[in-house]
């Protein structure tokens, strides 16, 4: 019962062209910037938007295709919307029971099942609460229970944690992870938050401009980004270049020495904390050393991120101690250094 989809939608100048396969029990995260087509993809899977061409099949049944379209209300799906869209005039229990009721379950039975699910998401005692009396985290859990109570074949999560504040988010994310692990159906998670995607998904699909630019297990994507967007998401310095032995000439100018020899077009990454900054040019050891100018300084929780103009341009994370020592200001001229062993190279 694998979900197979070729999602092709053309609307005005925008076009979506995305192939998705989700195995039972698998959680696939669709990750991409705003306007990449994530929501469009989710809407086609939900049956809220018909495909222009392509198809959606789950096992033997066709949900969308050249000669079949199953509308949303006929698809065995559950959707958790970004702002949950809980029905304001219904209690939490009625919200959760709604999907069962509309699929013909008897009232008492539906309410009992809804109550069990509320209990399961930790909202025992909130049956009669109206959505506006619930906190963000509670509302999210009601939305999850409402989506799962009908035992859907496909669970669609649209930015399920985006509306939560940072502290709630951590807890809800781990709960959601637990529920997804228990869920035997197909799950598609749409998000622009790499952390949500990494924690919750078995596989990532990176969507940019309506096309999948990269897909794979989170760890692989995080280690070997293939676009600037992904590299930025996972927080790596990312370059394209041409390798010849232990030397890579970067497309944007400059060059790097690498530890493992390679040939031909490659991607080069290294983390910002692999970059060290020096007032004087450092000597010795197999290091990449080049002059840079400070473009900007951003203070983060425990580190300071320095944006440096090269070539090549890099991000460097330095400690507060280093910052104090160097007394950095935009426009300062420095030396950047990266050990060849810190540089990760893989074929483009």
């Amino acid at each position: 019962m694998t979900l197979n989809a070729e999602l092709r939608v053309t609307r005005g100048t925008f076009s979506l062209d995305l192939d998705v396969t989700i195995a039972p029990g698998e959680v696939v995260a669709l990750l991409g910037p705003n306007g990449a087509g994530k929501s469009t993809a989710l809407r086609t899977l939900a049956g809220l938007l018909p495909l222009t061409s392509g198809h959606i099949t789950v096992g033997e049944s066709t949900w969308d295709g050249p000669d079949a379209f199953l509308p949303a209300e006929k698809r065995p799906i559950g959707v958790v919307f970004q702002d949950y869209l809980l029905f304001a005039h219904m209690s939490a229990l009625e919200n959760v029971a709604f999907g069962l009721r509309s699929r013909g379950t008897r009232k008492a039975e539906a309410r009992a099942a809804a109550a069990r699910w509320l209990d399961r998401v930790g909202l025992d005692g909130y049956e009669q609460a109206k959505p506006r009396a619930l906190s963000g985290g509670q509302a999210q859990r009601v939305a999850l229970a409402r989506a799962l109570v009908t035992g859907p074949s496909l669970l669609l999560l649209d930015e399920p944690l985006a509306a939560l504040d940072a502290s709630t988010r951590l807890q809800v994310r781990s709960e959601l992870s637990r529920h997804l692990a228990d869920f035997g159906g197909h799950t598609l998670l749409v998000t622009h938050d790499p952390l949500d995607a990494m924690v919750l998904a078995d596989r990532l699909v990176i969507l940019e401009g309506g096309r999948a630019v990269q897909s794979g297990p989170p760890a692989e994507v995080a280690r070997q980004p293939r676009t600037d967007y992904v590299a930025n998401l996972v927080g790596l310095n990312f370059f394209r270049g041409k390798a010849s032995g232990t030397r890579v000439d970067l497309d944007g100018g400059g060059g790097l020495t690498i530890a493992e020899p390679a040939e031909g077009p490659v991607h080069v990454v290294f983390p910002p904390n692999a970059v060290s900054l020096h007032a004087e040019k450092p000597e010795g050891s197999p290091r990449n050393v080049w002059p840079v100018t400070v473009a900007a300084i951003e203070q983060h929780a425990h580190t300071t991120r320095v944006r440096l103009d090269g070539p090549p341009d890099v991000l460097a994370d330095i400690t507060t101690a280093t910052l104090a020592e160097l007394r950095l200001r935009p426009g300062d001229e420095l030396w950047a250094a990266v050990k060849a062993t810190e540089v990760h190279v893989y074929p483009a």
Binding site: A46, G47, L48, P71, A72, E73, K74, R75, I77, G78, V79, F81, L85, F87, A88, H89, M90, F98, G99, S102, R103, R146, T150, L156
Partner: peptide
Amino acid sequence: DPRYEEAAATLGASKWLTFRRVTLPS
């Protein structure tokens, strides 16, 4: 907000049920 009607559709509600139970009360 018409998205509530979409939410109802994803919960299996027909157009008429959606109108009665979701749109009209709202």
